[in-house]
């Protein structure tokens, strides 16, 4: 039983990391109309940048700080270079662009950083833990949970209290009408990419030390993130974290008690079941099509 509780706690912490990747997906989906398949690889590429900085001899925390800025710039360049030109060609076209970006970023990582993958990434969080009764809890998990709650809170506050947040809400409800009301939609899309670029790096930094740094390290996270987004409701920024926890706990339980090869499959089943039973997810709102 105590094993189960430990598995659940680490599942929650993993689920929040999933949630933050899913958050990037949902945030871009709401503000730009397209869920970006390249979000995971953006995180991966940015983590590589931090790794290179760290290898260059500056400490890990300064590298992280510089990496945050570069991550935002990088995401902005991705938007301006690949998504902004001819952005009126429809969502399917944009969707395929993000898939092309997915391939491109992986290929770039392989070419620029690649030859000896995977790398050991320096530990950012303490290894120790403590016990509550029979249950072992790792500090790293608690800190992860704290960081992500802080990010979620910051975004919630931005939406609630700032003018930019209000404009982002307007764009996500109805981009053409927001444009008519004077919101500069493209500028906001660029801003959304900058923010997602930074959030993605957080996800990358939380993942890299646990696994090894490689060009395909974010692939499972991207899939889990999509599953979380669908379970939580593709339009709900808070729901995606709940979805992430559901996916994190379920996959953790499955890989502990059934087998690691079915972890991804269990997330897939969750995704399909959600689409079948409740297509708009736990917290999303059904969309109404006008004829």
């Amino acid at each position: 039983m105590s094993l189960a509780i430990s598995v659940i706690v680490s599942g929650i912490s993993f689920g929040l990391v999933i949630g933050i990747v899913g958050f990037g997906l949902v945030f871009l989906y709401k503000t730009t109309g397209v869920a970006n398949f390249a979000v995971g690889n953006m995180a991966m590429f940015e983590t590589f940048i931090v790794y290179e900085l760290w290898k260059g001899g500056i400490g890990i925390w300064p590298s992280v700080a510089i990496g945050m800025v570069l991550g935002g710039v990088f995401a902005l360049l991705v938007y301006l270079g690949a998504l902004r030109p001819f952005d009126g060609r429809g969502n399917s076209n944009l969707l395929v662009r993000t898939v092309a970006l997915y391939l491109l970023l992986r290929a770039m990582a392989d070419v620029f950083f690649g030859s000896n993958q995977p790398y050991n990434f320096p530990q950012l969080l303490p290894h120790s833990g403590f016990s509550v009764g029979p249950v072992d809890i790792a500090w790293a998990d608690l800190i992860t949970i704290g960081i992500i709650l802080a990010i979620g809170g910051a975004f919630a506050a931005m939406f609630r209290f700032t003018d930019i947040g209000l404009q982002l809400t307007a764009v996500s409800q109805n981009a053409p009408i927001a444009r008519l009301l004077g919101v500069r939609v493209r500028r906001l899309s660029a801003l959304a990419y900058v923010l997602v670029g930074m959030v993605a790096l957080v996800a990358g930094l939380l993942v890299a030390p646990k696994q090894l740094l490689s060009s395909n390290m974010m692939d499972p996270l991207l899939l889990y993130g999509f599953a979380a987004a669908v379970v939580g409701g593709l339009t709900s920024l808070g729901g995606v974290f709940v979805g992430g926890i559901v996916v994190g706990v379920v996959t953790n339980l499955v890989s502990t008690y059934v087998g690691g090869d079915l972890a991804l499959a269990s997330a897939f089943v969750l995704l399909l079941a959600t689409l079948a039973v409740r297509p708009h997810g736990l917290f999303g709102s059904p969309s109404i099509q006008r004829l």
């Binding site: 399917s92 899939l223 999509f226 090869d261 972890a263 995704l271 689409l275």
Partner: peptide, 21 residues
């Protein structure tokens, strides 16, 4: 039953699951 996005996503997912299996 899914829109194009859902179908793109589900098939993408499926490929990874199949590889794991």
């Amino acid at each position: 039953r899914l829109q194009h996005f859902g179908s793109a996503l589900a098939t993408f997912f499926l490929a990874a699951v199949a590889l794991d299996v």
